[in-house]
């Protein structure tokens, strides 16, 4: 674990950091955080257990254990990252380990929306560009400056036009990615909807 964890808050427009490359397709959320760590009523202690079983298997050679990655904050992954269980514990564990943004070929849907909900922008790049970054990371440090306004990632050797869902990009730039208050602004509309839905009237017998 690094310095004390502080949850992101407000506008996110710039993320600068060192990349950490994790190679593999279909890396599921059970691998990111095995189920036994879900026995908790808060997320506070998850950071140290991220990829626990994969790390134990690799005996110190897992990217999350390598000394040179200690300060990394931009995770670079391949395709369908975060598939499987909807556990938000997975991005929470990554975030508490120190990950602030992810760049990958593609993401599983629930994982992606969990990341957006807690303030981790997830960008996509074509397979070729991801491999270029991952090869680069094999040999040397890669520090990226990510500009969310322009959807650009810059470094001394490599530059990329990142892709991110426009709705997610706007939410981070406006600071409205923590959705609850935005949703509650429409309280009247919600009440109207509740009253309009046919089945609310059908179900008078129990709940």
């Amino acid at each position: 674990m690094k310095s004390k964890f502080i949850s992101p808050i407000g506008k996110i427009s710039q993320i600068n950091g060192q990349c950490i490359s994790l190679i593999g397709n279909d890396i599921d959320t059970d691998r990111i955080i095995p189920a036994r760590f879900l026995k908790c009523v808060n997320f506070d202690s998850l950071g140290k257990s991220v990829f626990e079983d994969d790390r134990k298997t690799l005996k110190g050679r897992h990217p999350f254990d390598l000394g040179e990655n200690k300060k990394a904050s931009i995770l670079v992954v391949n395709s369908n990252f975060g598939c499987g269980s909807s556990r938000e514990h997975a991005p929470q564990a990554l975030m508490r380990w120190g990950i602030k943004a992810i760049i990958g070929e593609s993401y599983a849907e629930i994982f992606y929306s969990n990341c957006i909900s807690i303030g981790i922008p997830c960008f996509t790049l074509p397979k070729k560009s991801i491999e270029e970054i991952q090869n680069y990371c094999d040999n040397q440090f890669l520090f990226l400056e990510i500009d969310l306004e322009k959807s650009l990632a810059k470094s001394k050797d490599l530059n990329f036009n990142l892709e991110i869902k426009e709705s997610s990009r706007k939410m981070f730039l406006s600071g409205e990615w923590d959705a609850t208050s935005t949703l509650l602004e429409n309280e009247n509309l919600i009440e109207n909807k509740f009253n309009q839905l046919p089945y609310i009237k059908f179900n008078t017998n129990l709940l």
Partner: peptide, 21 residues
């Protein structure tokens, strides 16, 4: 019917709605 993460569970509890594409 779809699965959601804990932050969206919070949103549904608070507003009975979620943000989704």
């Amino acid at each position: 019917a779809f699965g959601i993460g804990t932050s969206q569970v919070r949103d549904v509890l608070a507003s009975q709605t979620i943000a989704m594409n």
